[in-house]
Nucleic acid binder design. Structure first.
Lengths: 186, 186
DNA sequence: ACCACCATGTAACAGGTTACATGATTAA
DNA sequence: TTAATCATGTAACCTGTTACATGGTGGT
């Protein structure tokens, strides 16, 4: 088995190591890269990045070297080690689960009877707008042609997700409006 | 404004208070209810439930009374207070955002070039199976007719989500298989 | 004059998990 | 006799966030 002796790493650690497979980078680079490209599925706070990196070094998953610069602050460049690659590999090979949709939004809908229907409708409309914006952003990314080998698949996933939200919010809006209409007739 | 003086509460607190609007319950009841019905979008560990409940009492959002039982352990029953309702109301009125899909799965796809394509394909198939199972579970729930006023809408959201995953994994599987085929030709 | 970028970090806190601990009742 | 249900909690740990702190460089 590949995972028998493999060290456990967290999602953030996997993400960091994953980016490091693309080349030597500083904490600053990593955080920026994560936030921009692909960043729609993973974006830790920078404080977290700077906290995790030394841990990776300590555990032997990366090495660091200081680069002295003239007109900017010095920086640490991190490089993944074979042990790091192995740990990442192990993580990648664990089958992912369909996350159980732990979504505050769902809770707000579920408890919808506790607020005015208009509030709910406005929530749904906000959601629709946000999903549409996400979709546009992803379409733009897709049009650029992904630099990453599997970037496209990731974007497509995001698009399916956005589309699902759009579909749902359209039908939900209609249904909520119908309920308001019925209430007015009583 | 409704939220001006409203106390901040977390998602878990909102969920607990939300269930308490349905009636007096114990920690045990709450945890079980959350796990079953609707539980596909929210399911904290029981230790968390037992930790949060006394805090709610301390903050004046709920009251508790002990019920002495004969053939079972005694229990605490919690009841939501007007202040609790107000806090919940405030939380419900904050517009929800489209969560940025912080999904480990996405990361695994994104870094797909680091594992054998077969591993990726197997991941995608697992996902497909899980999404299908979720879909079936939700359809069964839907057929039962929801007890909660807005239960149906919640279920529909879950169905759209499941459907999106199914659609994506079907197309992803095809594409990955094609890549493997191409690689074999080289 | 002001803002964004480069670059790293600390401190305080929030929110959550797993594993451990206990122990009677009841249905298969 | 074995397992699930009822019922509550503690301890240790992990992961993550926001806010604070510092300070030069380079463009508008």
């Amino acid at each position: 088995m590949a995972s028998s002796g493999a060290a456990q790493i967290s999602v953030t650690e996997a993400a960091l190591l994953g980016l490091l497979t693309r080349g030597e980078m500083s904490g600053y680079d990593l955080q920026r890269t994560a936030e921009r490209s692909g960043g729609f599925f993973w974006a830790p706070a920078k404080s977290r990045v700077y906290a995790v990196l030394p841990q990776l070094v300590e555990r032997g998953f990366a090495t660091s070297r200081e680069v002295v610069q003239e007109h900017r602050p010095n920086k640490q460049l991190y490089r993944i080690t074979p042990a790091g690659r192995a740990a990442l590999q192990g993580w990648l090979e664990v089958p992912p689960g369909v996350e159980p949709e732990r979504n505050p939004l769902l809770l707000k809908i579920f408890l919808g009877d506790l607020v005015e229907p208009e509030v709910l409708i406005s929530h749904v409309r906000t959601l629709h707008a946000e999903a549409t914006a996400l979709k546009r952003r992803l379409e733009a990314l897709e049009a650029n042609g992904a630099a990453e080998p599997y970037g496209e698949l990731t974007i497509k996933f995001g698009l399916e997700w956005a589309q699902a939200v759009i579909r749902w919010s359209r039908s939900a809006e209609k249904e909520l409006e119908a309920r308001v209409g019925q209430a007015a007739l009583r």
